[in-house]
């Protein structure tokens, strides 16, 4: 499913609000943002928004205005997600490309490290499908 403009706007605005309120209390969270940068949200459990935001990052990397591009993972408490946040925050993105078999999208950083991202789902005890984001740091 492709998000509408309104859905993408509202979901990103909610993540931005959460992060900016966090920044007010923790100004060190500003340090990884390059002056004048493009910031793109990286949600923890919203595969649709993840896909839309990766497409946005790809467009900015290829046809942008030369400003640095950074993706900032959602502020959450999970230990594994925290490790992911620490790896990715403060790194300048130079490209976003699908990998060879189309399983992952690769975020390519200026320091030549990469993150492979994909959306998955698991079924909880109530039989409900729960989306989550899977990644590999390289």
């Amino acid at each position: 499913m492709t998000l509408t403009r309104e859905e993408m706007f509202q979901r990103n605005l909610a993540l931005t609000k959460k992060r900016l309120l966090h920044v007010l209390r923790n100004p060190s969270a500003l340090q990884p943002i390059f002056p004048g940068a493009h910031v793109i949200n990286l949600p923890q459990d919203d595969p649709e928004l993840l896909g839309a935001n990766l497409a946005l990052a790809m467009e900015l990397a290829r046809r942008g205005d030369g400003r640095p591009i950074v993706m900032i993972p959602e502020v959450t408490e999970g230990e594994r997600w925290r490790e992911f946040r620490e790896f990715i925050v403060g790194k300048r993105i130079v490209d976003v490309i699908p990998d060879e078999d189309g399983t992952y999208l690769d975020l390519i950083f200026e320091d030549e490290t990469q993150v492979k991202l994909r959306a998955l789902a698991w079924t909880n005890e109530e039989g409900e499908e729960q989306p989550f984001i899977d990644w590999i740091l390289t």
């Binding site: 403009r5 993408m8 990103n12 943002i33 493009h38 910031v39 400003r67």
Partner: peptide, 15 residues
């Protein structure tokens, strides 16, 4: 720390 400015991208047409 000083002043810092940046752009929050919301959609392809909104920021």
């Amino acid at each position: 720390m000083g002043r810092k400015d940046w752009i929050e991208n919301l959609t392809h047409q909104d920021r």
